[in-house]
Simulated assay, not measured.
Amino acid sequence: MQFEMRLAEYGILIHILIEIWQRRSKEKNFRRNGGELLKHHRVRIFTEVELAKATNNYDTSNKLGEGGFGSVYMGRIAGDTVFAVKKPKDVHKSLIKGDFQHELEIVMQINHKNVVKLHGICLETRIPLLVYEYISNGTLFQHIHQNASTIMNSWKKRLGIATEVALALEYMHSCAEPPIIHGDIKSVNILLDQNYSVKVSDFGTSVLISPERSHVLANEIQGTLGYIDPEYLTTGLITIKSDVYSFGVVLVELLTGKKPTSFITKSGESINIIHYFISSMKDKTLSDVINFEDASEDEIERIEMVAEIAVKCLDQNSARRPAMREVAEQLARINRELDGSIVEENKEETETEVDEENLYSHTTSTTSKMSQHGTSGSLF
């Protein structure tokens, strides 16, 4: 009996010691992750327990996505607020910790409607957990290539999405202090909210640059095959023009509905879609790569303008590529013109319908009067 009591006491003591160790470990991680400084910023500090409960202990049913860094989980607080928790893998902890702290440094400086917002952080874990706003409509990649999305049937919506991505990049390059190179612009990192507005995400490979510098020499080439700036690949120098090239690839993806790594066979030769797109612009055979079947004449004209912008962004020489501010301005103007032409078209259709209704009303009235006077037959 005494032995059992002593065993129970030892069990309680061990439990208390574990709790003390865990609390001290969390406090140590909090300090090491810069908690004392960060708690004075306008960012919510979550506890490890809060996030575990909100994600049902990171249950697989709540997993939104997975990458080399780790996984993203959906979480709920008080049953109402939905958010996304970026949880790193346990491997290569020192490297991943550096990546997460770097991403945290980047996203805390960003405030733009077309960039995913950081809701908070958890500093009690060895590697911080990042808590982002939850974007409900998935990625642009899914809408183009997987969902057969109805929004992709609208050229106006496609061009609107392109414009919003351009505005987000313009902000990062021209308005953020210091300027930010995203470093991995691709359709997977472009999220769409409930209104199908753009939210650019994933700043794990982003770079802060000082105003007096035009480039950064990367320790290793990072990015995604098909979207990477070829000049960055050969020199190791990443610049804001590297983002411009990647944006050009996204434009081609939006216009053609093809993945940037796909190939098209022409005259028995397989040609990468990007090269095929550029050559079709030079040969004035854009209809070979873009389906204009559902486009109006005004839309075709605007699509060709956007295609010209894409080709400029895809220039092999980064110095000849336009700045994102110029690209954003051009796309915004094209959208305004397209909106104007649609309004005018709808106005003409409405006027035609009104004229037809008036004609029908006049005809009916005249026929009725003629009937009352004993007249029948055609008015004409």
Rank of each mutant, 00 (worst) to 15 (best):
M1Q: 02
I16V: 09
L17S: 05
W21P: 03
R24D: 13
R24V: 06
G34L: 03
G34C: 03
G35C: 02
L37E: 08
E48A: 02
A52W: 07
K63D: 03
L64N: 04
G65E: 00
G68C: 03
G68P: 04
F69T: 06
G70L: 01
V82L: 14
P88T: 14
P88A: 15
D90C: 01
L95C: 09
K97N: 12
D99I: 14
K113G: 13
I127H: 11
P128E: 13
E133R: 03
T139Y: 11
T150H: 14
I151N: 02
I151R: 00
N153Y: 12
G160H: 05
A162H: 09
T163M: 01
E164N: 15
Y171R: 02
P178R: 14
I190E: 03
Y196N: 15
S197P: 00
V198H: 08
S201M: 10
F203V: 05
F203M: 02
V207P: 00
H215D: 10
L217P: 01
P230I: 08
L233C: 15
Y245D: 00
V249Q: 07
L255R: 08
G257K: 10
E269P: 07
I271D: 07
I273D: 03
I274Q: 07
H275R: 05
I278R: 03
M281N: 04
D283Q: 10
T285R: 10
L286K: 08
S287K: 11
D294E: 08
D298C: 09
R302F: 03
V311M: 09
C313N: 01
D315R: 07
P322E: 12
E329I: 11
S341C: 14
E345F: 01
E348N: 10
V354D: 08
L359V: 15
Y360N: 08
T366L: 10
S368I: 00
M370Y: 12
S371K: 00
Q372S: 09
T375D: 01
F380P: 03
